[in-house]
Amino acid sequence: MTPGSNLPLAAARVAVTVTAPVRLDVSGLLLTVGGKVRSDDDFVFYNQPAGPGVSHRAASDGDTITVDTSAVPAEIDKVVVTASLDAPGATFAGTEPTGTVRDADGGAVLATFTPPRLGPETALVVMEIYRRGGGWKVRAVGQGYADGLAGIATDFGVSVEEPAPPAPAAPPAPVPPAQWAPPTGAPAPVAPPPQAASPAPQAPAPATGKINLDKGRVSLRKNQTVSLVKGGRPLLASVRMGLGWEPARRGRSIDLDASVIAYGPDRDKIDSCYFGKLRILDAAIQHSGDNLTGDGAGDDEVITVHLGGIPPQVTGLVFVVNSFSGQKFSEVAKAYCRLTDAQTGEELVRFDLTGAEPRTGVMMAKLIRQYSGEWEMTALGDFVDARTVRGMVKPAAAAL
């Protein structure tokens, strides 16, 4: 499976095992349609190995969350399976955990997923088992957090209590820094000696381990992702996706068409916005109109997206460019897409397409709505043979 992809479950009882070259703590959270647990009893992990319809089993070859869909309460919409690193201070950079979904009774493998492009994350939502149309499905997620299992638990409404330090009988005497060391396996004390060594500066951690907009404009390479979050808040204002290109040979115009396709959670097409249909989703998405040459400075075609106005049934947007006249992208130079703030014109994210193939369509980027409401933008740069947006529907769905 790839991030965002989903499959119907052929078994009523499924077991999700998460494995990695290092020790992981795996847990399951039962969430309502609001994306939160009903109480802390809906958090299933090594210290609370059983919940309604969900159980945890620890093993040397990977912890397993088993979901009996017939026993999951009716008000529970999904069960998310998470993984966090057991070693303090470790991140998923260089570590590739894999989630494997099996028939819990027969043992047959139903799906596998390895989240790509991991870096500073210390915890992940690996997969989710969710209701859809009277049945159950599994979706590959791969959403990262920088503040460990506690960050995931808090995000989904679990009360996380920090361990209280023991109360000293008398004011402690100063301890020389050279003699102080934390006991092996114990939590770091609340107030360590002033000169005690610390493995890393204790700066406030962001809500997730993904790249966001806090440091200004982000330049993406192919398959990189940025979370549209600034100052800890999701960007839900109006943005513009500008797409531009130039003829590879001077004096020869090239007619390309930029479009966006809107998809639902099952990768089903909801609508598409292009030069022949300039407004969709009650004008939440608007197209600037057709550019017939590619000449001139600036964006050739612009698609405005009112993020806060996108209907909840739309979970993904894929931006594509096609050559209706049949000219190949090997005849195109300096193709790019860039996301700007529609109010200020500030450039937020840019992706410059490097390389070209003699094909008539390219998927430039996708926007995916996350659990917490923010959107993520991923650079694609994948070429296909399609001269119209209609021919892009299937390959773009597969890219979600």
Rank of each mutant, 00 (worst) to 15 (best):
P311H: 09
Y336L: 09
E347Q: 14
F351I: 12
P312V: 15
Y371Q: 15
T344I: 04
K328H: 05
I310M: 12
Y336R: 11
M363C: 11
F383W: 08
E374A: 06
R359Q: 12
V349R: 02
T344D: 04
N322K: 05
L339R: 06
E376Y: 07
V318G: 02
L353N: 11
T354K: 14
L339S: 05
D341W: 09
F329T: 10
Q343I: 11
S323F: 00
V318N: 00
Q313M: 13
G355A: 11
D385M: 07
A365H: 06
T378V: 09
L367P: 00
C337T: 10
L339Y: 07
S323H: 00
D352P: 00
Y371F: 15
Y371S: 15
M364T: 12
S325D: 15
L317Y: 01
Q370R: 10
V384H: 06
P358Q: 07
A356I: 15
D382N: 15
P358Y: 07
V305L: 06
E347N: 11
K334L: 11
R387K: 12
E331V: 13
E374K: 02
L353V: 14
F319L: 03
V384E: 04
G326L: 05
T354N: 14
M364V: 13
W375M: 00
S330C: 05
T360D: 01
R369D: 03
K328G: 03
F324D: 02
A379P: 05
F329M: 13
D382V: 15
S372D: 14
S330K: 10
A379E: 10
C337W: 14
L339N: 03
L353H: 13
S372A: 14
M377W: 01
M364Q: 07
L353Q: 13
I310V: 13
T315P: 03
A342R: 06
D382K: 14
A365D: 05
V362R: 11
A356S: 15
R350S: 12
W375I: 01
E347L: 10
A335D: 12
G373C: 05
G361N: 01
T360S: 05
M377S: 01
F324I: 05
R359I: 02
G355F: 10
T315G: 04
P311I: 06
E331F: 13
V332A: 08
L307K: 04
G361T: 01
A379V: 13
I310D: 08
G361W: 03
D385I: 02
R387H: 07
M364Y: 04
I368N: 08
L307G: 01
G309M: 15
S330T: 11
F351E: 08
A386K: 07
T360P: 02
L348A: 09
L307V: 01
S323I: 00
R359V: 01
D385H: 06
E346H: 10
K328Q: 07
K366S: 06
A342S: 07
S330R: 08
S372K: 12
V349S: 03
A365N: 09
T354G: 14
A379I: 12
T360L: 03
A335K: 12
L367H: 05
T340F: 10
D341M: 10
G308E: 08
D352E: 12
G308I: 09
F319I: 04
R338A: 03
F383M: 04
G381C: 13
I310K: 10
L307Y: 04
